[in-house]
Design a binder for these strands. Structure first.
Lengths: 133, 133
DNA sequence: CTAAGTGTACCGCGTAACATAGTACACGTG
DNA sequence: CACGTGTACTATGTTACGCGGTACACTTAG
């Protein structure tokens, strides 16, 4: 095992970290990412794990890799929404909603979460229904 | 392997199928689920796999199991939203949103998806934004 | 050209999760 | 009692994950 018990593979966690930075504007188009070995030192991972994340990100057209130079953030021009991707996203959203309903989370609050995720990063503080201890 | 290549474990798929039926009202509180061995025949799974799903669902207070009688849908009274669960849901929602943004899906459409998931089941047909090449 | 840095491709190893098969036990109902 | 119920356990095989190590092709800087 790597560090702690996670339910998500390490290379996927790294992928989401990079994706989030791209979406939030921390990483700009054309910017160079740390090399595989460098990122491995930064994140405390094995270079192979980082390489696996980079390879997967390139398959999703998030980054572009030039064999001797490095990996760079890629512009997502002409990214047509695949029908299969739509279905997956709707299913994943459905799972979140089912859990949220069980947790007695209102639709309004979910809409606020959605806007928070879509616009910037931070989530608005959770509004408890009349609790204050 | 069981049937086809899935990225989600079989027992989790069964869990979500049951959860969705509970959320949509197909399964009512107190209703009896098929027995472990019966469900195994229906779904084409191993009884152990079904038992694993049932055990996990009981840990989440979705169903109630009486040792000699069977398993029944449970009312989720007094289900307080755990802070950790909130964080997980927000993170999962964030992942969906990041992917949706990359796929050029508008916020409005995501809100429609959310409402569809929350109220009933079927998704409204996907509205293309004026593209016809 | 040489050297360093880059991504990539392997192979092996160990751990864990997943799914199956089979058996057995404790419980409730008829 | 016999039957169906959930549960527990052992065992086997497969797969994914992560690490370690090595090697190769490529680009850039010296």
């Amino acid at each position: 095992m790597a560090q702690i018990q996670r339910n998500q593979p390490l290379y996927e966690q790294l992928m989401w970290r990079i994706k989030a930075q791209v979406a939030s504007g921390v990483l700009i188009i054309g910017e160079k990412l740390p090399s595989v070995r460098e990122m491995a030192l930064i994140e405390g991972l094995n270079p192979n794990t980082v390489a696996k994340a980079y390879r997967a990100l390139e398959n999703q057209n998030v980054i572009e890799t030039v064999t001797g130079k490095g990996t760079f953030i890629r512009a997502n021009d002409e990214f047509t929404a695949d029908e299969q991707l739509i279905a997956i996203l709707q299913e994943q959203l459905g799972e979140v909603v089912i859990e949220a309903k069980r947790a007695s989370i209102s639709v309004q609050e979910l809409h606020q979460w959605l806007d928070s995720c879509y616009s910037g990063k931070p989530h608005s503080p959770r509004r408890m229904h009349g609790i204050s201890h």
